[in-house]
């Protein structure tokens, strides 16, 4: 149903738009760089642009006023920011910023809103991605309550690797700390546990995935079930 026909794009959603919907949004898509820490959405503020990522990682981050940032959503070339807009809200509840530099096609919200109003197929398609993101978030809530640090780390590394490829991740401990909801020094401890099991190698600022299957096994169902739901809702990645 959703075949990746628009092969000049890397974004899995744009690749799958119908010819009519692509014609509707394409004139307003502007290619842009996503430098590290670029703010894509501000908390409780109107959304200005929607980003369809081509590469890199955007992180949806929730914040307790007195507490630390915690990641509640991960977006790469399989997704988009601005899901609140697809649901008819005009503001973002959370912050979303770039955790791994990349590129995107961005679109001003007014243009997306008018495209959504003109097309009968665009919103239903993008809502499928909203569902996939909802499932991802539900699993994050689940693992945050139920899984050990090393299991959660295994899940995040796999999720990042899916969005980057090459079994080699250049991600900061600061980012991993936000993903795991722990203080930054604890990341070293968790990485060491995975290294001790022979699943990864952590080098200066770089993490090499040595045993993907071992990581999937360690993540114990928290990885791969949401990914399967993405494939069901949208399609095979890549």
């Amino acid at each position: 149903m959703y075949k990746p026909n628009n092969k000049k794009y890397k974004n899995e959603l744009i690749r799958r738009l119908s010819q009519e919907d692509l014609a509707l949004v394409e004139p307003d898509l502007v290619r842009c760089e996503l430098p590290l820490r670029m703010m894509l959405e501000k908390r409780n503020s109107p959304i200005e642009f929607v980003y369809f990522l081509e590469g890199g990682i955007g992180s949806i981050v929730a914040k307790m006023p007195m507490g630390r940032d915690t990641e509640v959503g991960l977006i790469g070339f399989e997704g988009m920011t601005g899901t609140a807009l697809v649901l008819g809200d005009d503001q973002s509840t959370h912050e979303c910023y770039v955790q791994l530099a990349g590129e995107a096609h961005r679109m001003p919200v007014d243009q997306l809103r008018s495209a959504l109003a003109q097309s009968t197929t665009l919103r239903p398609f993008l809502l499928r991605y909203v569902q996939a993101l909802f499932i991802q978030t539900s699993y994050t809530a689940l693992v945050n309550a139920r899984s050990k640090l090393e299991e959660r780390l295994a899940r995040w590394l796999l999720m990042c690797d899916d969005r980057v490829g090459g079994d080699r991740l250049t991600i900061t401990h600061e980012f991993l700390a936000i993903m795991l909801g722990v203080r930054r020094p604890g990341v070293t401890v968790a990485l060491q546990i995975l290294e001790g099991k022979g699943l990864i190698r952590a080098n200066r600022g770089e993490i090499i995935l040595r045993d993907r299957n071992g990581l999937i096994e360690l993540a114990d169902g928290a990885y791969s079930e949401p990914e399967g739901e993405y494939r069901r809702l949208i399609g095979e990645i890549g």
């Binding site: 600061e174 930054r184 020094p185 401890v189 990485l191 060491q192 290294e195 952590a202 200066r204 600022g205």
Partner: peptide, 10 residues
């Protein structure tokens, strides 16, 4: 005996 280095610091 094992020391895991923190290359990043804060």
């Amino acid at each position: 005996d094992r020391l895991s280095e923190d290359y990043e610091g804060e």
